[in-house]
Amino acid sequence: MKILAANRLTDGETVWLGAGDCWVESIDAAHVARDKEDEERLLAVGKGGLASNQVIDVTLVDIETVEGRIHPLRLRERIRAGGPSIHPDLGKQARLNARSAA
């Protein structure tokens, strides 16, 4: 299974392609491609995002689902999805923690 990751042009924020081909800030909302055809489609939309200057550095990321949640296989992509492991107070993980604490 794969998802499509990129960085937003204006601020570099890591984003993924989600439902309705929108770029989303949380990996949980990424659209999961379960077959080759869907992967091709993700890449095509990603190329479009690159061409329309919304995102840069578009790549497919290998994942599995763990208890229904998206879990990238590589640590690199897991860190990208959360933020620096040494700074739970920074990046996406901080926003998520703040939300779950509220």
Binding site: N7, L9, G12, S52, N53, I56, I79
Partner: peptide, 28 residues
Amino acid sequence: RRLSGELTEDEFKPLRLMNGVYLQLHAY
């Protein structure tokens, strides 16, 4: 010009690198 789309990323990347701007995992 990059933000307006006049420059593509392929065109812009060498220019930003000449000015110390990299892309990392979470941000520039």
